[in-house]
């Protein structure tokens, strides 16, 4: 069986995080964000043999590329106040992104309904199974949080 190409594997695994940094965190316009992500992966193609953690390398490279993008876009002005976010916060968000990417789409939908849309436990239970039990809804939310939490613990080497 052929060994999977490490660069293509990294692309599949970390595309979401790199694109998230460009498109969401640094609010780079869609067409430019695609080009920027492409450039980051090209740089990775050149350096991947010496890299130990492809995710960390790509995140750092994406962040630098985004800062450069805004510097070049507005060469005579400082960066807009909302850009870029502090790296610590950015890293936490990217970590969370990676963690949530590993929970099921159903769980992501449940967490989104609960924490973003503010749906009640009873509403979640109704949307998911037609039940009206708020206890069931709470259990669903809890189960999804536990899955996310387990992924977080695994990432931190505590699993």
């Amino acid at each position: 069986m052929a060994t999977p190409d490490p660069v293509e594997t990294a692309y599949a695994k970390h595309y979401a995080a790199v694109h998230f940094i460009a498109a969401v965190q640094f609010r780079i316009p869609a067409a430019d964000a695609d080009q920027l992500v492409h450039d980051v992966f090209l740089a990775f193609l050149r350096h991947h043999e010496t890299v130990g953690d492809s995710g960390a390398w790509l995140v750092a490279s994406a962040r630098n590329a985004c800062i450069s993008y805004w510097r070049k876009a507005k060469p005579t002005e400082g960066l807009p106040p909302s850009l870029p976010e502090p790296p610590r916060d950015l890293n936490a968000r990217v970590d969370l992104l990676r963690i949530l990417a590993s929970v099921s789409p159903r769980c992501r939908q449940i967490l989104y309904s609960r924490f973003v849309e503010g749906a009640s436990a009873a509403q979640i239970a109704r949307d998911c199974s037609g039940s009206t039990s708020s206890d069931y809804g709470r259990r669903l939310v809890h189960r999804c949080l536990t899955a996310a939490r387990a992924a977080l613990a695994k990432k931190a080497g505590r699993a």
Partner: peptide, 13 residues
């Protein structure tokens, strides 16, 4: 707190 910010989840959806 991170979950309540929403953009991460929205992005994943």
């Amino acid at each position: 707190v991170e979950l309540s910010r929403g953009e991460v989840l929205q992005y994943l959806l």
